[in-house]
Amino acid sequence: MRLNEVERGDGLANRLLIKFISMVSGMRLPGAARVAFYHKDFFGGPMGAWTQAAMRGPSSWSVAERELMACMVAKWNACAFCVGAHGAIAAKDMQRPVIDEATSNFRTAKISAHLKSALLFLEVMTLRPDQLKAQHARAALNAGLSRQALTDAIAVGAVFNIVTRYANALDFAMPTPDEFDRAAEMLLKRGYGS
């Protein structure tokens, strides 16, 4: 974490809260959670609400499918922290080997055709947004995605194009696989809102 105040918490209440959660959970509170507490009115509050809506709101996509989308955006943006965090959550429902296959080559992974078509769109949106065109949307719709399903995927893509950037810029410390697994349980129970 490159900013000490984000690491420790701003204000006595948040510092105590971070220490308490770390103590109770038996693990260092991940950087993403520290950002969620920090400068809340400016960023953490609204960002948490948007992330919760995109990742846990009503959608034809399952929670695991949206977590895999987040994991893939993280991979495209070279954010190892988010690949680990969201891959771990997706793996709670989808199988770990499938997640690993997808991060290696989603085009050949054993995921649904719908999810593949969403990822094809999100890949261009993430890596080459200036080249994103109506034909990319048409391809996803022709593959059977509803307009709403593609919109929901776009929301996940937008959120994680933001999250991965601040995660990388702040250089979040990397949890261990066991810590990612425990954090995944917490995120599945609590979600992203505050």
Binding site: M125, T126, L132, T151, I154, A155, G157, F160, N161
Partner: peptide, 11 residues
Amino acid sequence: GLSRWDRAVKV
């Protein structure tokens, strides 16, 4: 993130 959102929704 928001510029990507905007572009994606437009297309």
